[in-house]
Design a protein around this nucleic acid. Structure first.
Lengths: 338, 338
DNA sequence: ACTCGATCGGGAACCGGTTCCAGGGGTTAC
DNA sequence: GTAACCCCTGGAACCGGTTCCCGATCGAGT
């Protein structure tokens, strides 16, 4: 392992000149720069980012806190963030936060604080005012994905509006017996995504004068969850709805599989719409409201880097609402008047 | 931001004593330790891990290189690694390596080398001898998951053997027209997992005297990939096999969906077996050879920490072959003699 | 009483860079 | 001719910890 002093010696210059030559900051003649570079590559020298961070206070490392890895939306967001960070020359340190409160505190108190990261991206994690304050006091830019966090820039889709649109699509096709299969209303993720989607659904139904009592069915946000709920909901032909708004495409896929198993024709006997534009939604022809989580991750990184580069300016406390696009496929159709 | 010197001053001791008190190394009386701890918590002091790493040479950070995030196996492995590392007080820095060779070189030359990580876990990435040498020269322990890498400890399932077992299960049920739906044999992942699984399949077939020419169908390793391949393979009733060995459970699920769509009864008309024990395999009752990727990730971390703690001992160059368990569900059954 | 070892605390060097500052030389402007 | 720059370089301080080394204290053993 060679260090800067070695490079300087071989190149016949001082440490400070060698540092300037390699980092590109300050005046160095083209000639000496070349000499230094030659010496560096001869020795196979690479800077110690630890030493550099110690003096500059910047680590070129971003912390990402995220509740799941093994779910489509989160994995896509993570991939988007990773790609954008690598491109910008940043490292990504990953913290998966389960619902374990102790772990969450440990991550914030022990890991994020220790000058290891320059900034933090919170994916569908509602940072508490205290957590925001703590990190901001340390001068760390923050960006939130998936929901509004007071005091910091954030971006997400409009869950209520998106759900309203999805439901209206079903209503416009003449459906009246519509139910929502979505996430547990009690044990929510942060930002109450589940309730928001249910709310959007209810608004559309009320606006059309279609409200009915038994309009909700709980499901885990996964294909298996949708499948189980689908079997339960579709089992009884008398109470079966003519259309289902699924809380996400994974649920929609599960319902689709269940419907096929029960011999229920889609969209002939049942229309299904989801949210996400999961690859399987395309494969199975499921109508959906498309969002692009990877792009959201990339955008979040942009917002973050802007803050890092203009650390003097106050954090822009704005919430970006990203559009979702209705993508009509073959899982939705006009209601069949029997 | 308070620094150690502040804590020392408040506690009325020297920097060295304060350091010893907080890090727990060296002799400190219980009394002064308490004073130092009180001062530290009063000031909200946290060590600068950067400064600490600079002098100790340890970062308590592990790099993970992985080709995908959004696939079940990889996400599970990643979750397992993350959980184990956090528990041990380590950070996890994530590098997703696509097939882009430039990016791969950049990650190795630019990111991994800079004293940012203490060790590296390679998930289904065949490190070249040069890469292994480079990282080992820097004294960084390595562990590989998903395939054998010369010179470093590694762990994986036995792909050939597992595939042989899966195929034998089908053969033992009386099937003769069996095909393998697996990954592209040319454009492979590292470790040639696709070929290995095909090889295991072929061995079992040959051993039973069942070899036939048209026994392979290519599919992407995803549900959509399996679905597309399933439609193609099952479309023509005359050439349709009575059993399929899928390269992974996601493919098996896709085939299952395709079969249902085509009205082909499983296992009545078609038996399907996969590898993985994906949650959907359980939901849909797919027979499989179970592996536990999360546990593999955890085990890899153990191996890594052992190496870090005994950095004097040479790297144990052994390959752990993990068992897979035949999990019979309702997607496989005896062949129907028509 | 004296030695010895264990325990405790402080001073200072050190990790490997970056950056401030001072100074020398060359150019242009007045 | 010299003042005012800009360009280039080296010396030295500094970032914030850890750890080596040394001296002091104290209790126990002989």
């Amino acid at each position: 392992m060679s260090i800067l002093a070695d490079v300087a010696r071989i190149a016949g210059v001082s440490k400070s000149t060698a540092s300037r030559a390699l980092s590109g900051r300050g005046y160095v003649s083209t000639d000496t720069r070349r000499k230094v570079e030659a010496a560096a590559s001869e020795l196979g020298y690479v800077v110690s980012s630890t030493a550099a961070s110690l003096v500059t206070g910047r680590t070129r490392n971003v912390g990402v806190v995220i509740p799941y890895i093994n779910r489509w939306y989160f994995a896509e967001v993570l991939e988007g963030i990773e790609a954008a960070l690598i491109r910008a020359g940043y490292d990504l340190t990953l913290y998966r936060l389960s619902t374990d409160h102790d772990l969450r505190r440990r991550v914030f108190d022990y890991f994020l604080v220790r000058k290891r990261v320059d900034a933090v991206i919170a994916v569908t994690i509602a940072l508490s005012p205290h957590e925001v304050e703590m990190l901001q006091a340390l001068g760390k830019p923050l960006v939130a994905i998936g929901g509004r966090v007071a005091g910091i820039p954030s971006l997400s889709i409009d869950d209520v509006e998106t759900s309203r649109l999805a439901t209206e699509h079903l209503i416009s096709l003449g459906h009246e017996r519509i139910i929502h299969v979505g996430g547990d209303q009690e044990e929510q993720m942060d930002f109450r995504v589940h309730s928001q989607r249910y709310t959007g659904f209810q608004r559309a139904m009320e606006a059309a004068g279609l409200s009915n009592a038994d309009d909700f069915r709980e499901a885990e946000f996964s294909i298996s969850g949708g499948y189980a709920a689908g079997l339960a909901v579709l089992g009884d032909p008398r109470t079966r709805p003519t259309a289902i708004f699924a809380g996400c495409d994974e649920i929609a896929v599960g319902i689709m599989i269940a419907a096929r198993q029960l011999g229920i024709g889609v969209p002939h006997d049942l229309s299904i719409i989801g949210i996400d534009d999961h690859p399987l939604a395309e494969t199975l022809g499921i109508t959906t409201l498309a969002q692009r989580p990877g792009a959201q991750g990339g955008r979040a990184v942009e917002l973050l880097l802007e803050q890092i580069d203009h650390s003097d300016a106050p954090a822009p406390d704005e919430h970006l609402l990203l559009p979702t696009g209705l993508t009509v496929r073959s899982s939705t159709g006009p209601v069949r008047t029997s």
